[in-house]
Design a protein around this nucleic acid. Structure first.
Lengths: 231, 231
DNA sequence: CAGGGGATGTTAATGGCGTCAACATCGGGC
DNA sequence: GCCCGATGTTGACGCCATTAACATCCCCTG
């Protein structure tokens, strides 16, 4: 699929004809995703309008139906992109912490949380689209009782880094082993809660400096909770 | 305003004529809000469609414009209702914890968080509408740098209870005083993160039992973080 | 106790959106 | 070389939000 479109795109390039001027675009799917992503960046998930994306690419609205099942499908692509970007952002933030001692593990956990929230603030539209875009979560219901949902391959790297850091906390005796399982969820919830509260909740409009201070406070709380001696 | 409509409503009742059958409804504003909240309950904020609400009440779509600026205004009313319901839910949950000792304070904090998440799970549509309904947070930008946003009067009771419980934690020596300020935000973020993750995030579709276990885990983490000795 | 005026509802119309069906155009494989 | 399927286009339908113009009702004044 991508081969064919790529070939067409190459031809367009070779002929010195801009793809948008040809009857067959050559890479319409990606062009639409890019346009839709831009819309999401500027206006959140609600701004991901199929006709608007087509307009941006310079193509008729119904052309999109050759590449997507419908608007929801297009939005889904944006969602996955946003989630990928978020994971990358976290990965970079986590990788900036060197070493593998206890302090490094703690610092890395904090960096991951900070990266999560920072991405939400820097790319509010994409972040909002990455979650909440779908109405009433028709996310897979996990029939088999599996742990989470869908492919989630995007989240893996950042998630793994968090898990490893938590393992390190246990390994060096900072965290009681019996409270290790499920710790990822607590950390994730804290970061996600901060992110959503500042985007569309009571923390919206807070001065940046004050908000960052609260984030550090929350990170301290969660780390302190992890490393506190068992009651 | 309400007087007049109430008077009309009374008349309708006295005449034994159902309000919806009269040319002038008598209490259209409230009827529309009720219909809209029903829509939100069933389908989330995206289902709050002005025409649908009017249809439910048995009135022409444009009649709504006599009582609301537009769909956004109607949605806003639903939002406030949802937030009020959430606060009530928390208040009840918190009030079920008796006593005022250290254990009670801890238990009350946990109960508030549990109530928050439980409401989200029991009323996903209303909860989603209470937040995130507005696109790209046109929430007041806090020009003056004021602490939070808008009136927030709805949140006061539950928020106060949380603050008091945290104060109690400090008073009885369980929580270091220097980490008291900002603790509400950490607790709020944790609860809100759990709620949103389970509604529209990676925790969606998790078996209820497992999710509840994770909630208790997260509550333990946040409380442990609060009560941990300063590093 | 009239009836006039303002509040409240209705119909009609505009423009945008998602989506389907029918038609047009291109280009790679026989 | 040409033909068929992939890719785009036009046209149309139904839904939505919103505005303008018109209709109905009921309280308040005289």
């Amino acid at each position: 699929m991508e081969d064919k479109s790529a070939a067409n795109g190459d031809r367009a390039a070779r002929d010195g004809v801009r793809a948008k001027d040809r009857y067959h675009h050559g890479d319409l799917r990606n062009a639409l995703i890019e346009a839709a992503t831009g819309l999401a960046r500027e206006g959140g998930p609600g701004a991901v309008v199929l006709r608007a994306a087509a307009r941006r690419v310079g193509v008729s609205p119904t052309a999109a139906y050759r590449h997507f099942e419908g608007q929801a499908d297009l939005l889904d692509e944006v969602k996955q992109y946003g989630q990928r970007r978020l994971a990358e952002h976290m990965l970079v933030a986590g990788a900036e912490v060197a070493g593998d001692g206890p302090e490094a593990a703690v610092a890395r956990i904090r960096a991951l949380g900070r990266g999560y929230v920072r991405f939400a603030v820097e790319e509010p539209g994409l972040f909002s689209a990455a979650f909440g875009g779908t109405e009433m979560s028709p996310l897979v219901v996990g029939e088999a009782g599996g742990v989470v949902a869908e492919d989630q391959s995007w989240r893996a790297p950042a998630f793994d880094m968090l898990a490893e850091s938590l393992d390190a906390l246990v390994a060096c005796g900072l965290m009681p082993a019996e409270r290790r399982p499920g710790a990822e969820v607590s950390a994730w919830a804290m970061a996600h809660g901060l992110a959503t509260l500042v985007l569309e909740g009571p923390l919206a409009g807070l001065p940046a400096e004050m908000f960052e201070h609260l984030v550090e406070r929350a990170l301290s709380d969660i780390v302190a909770g992890f490393t506190a001696p068992a009651p």
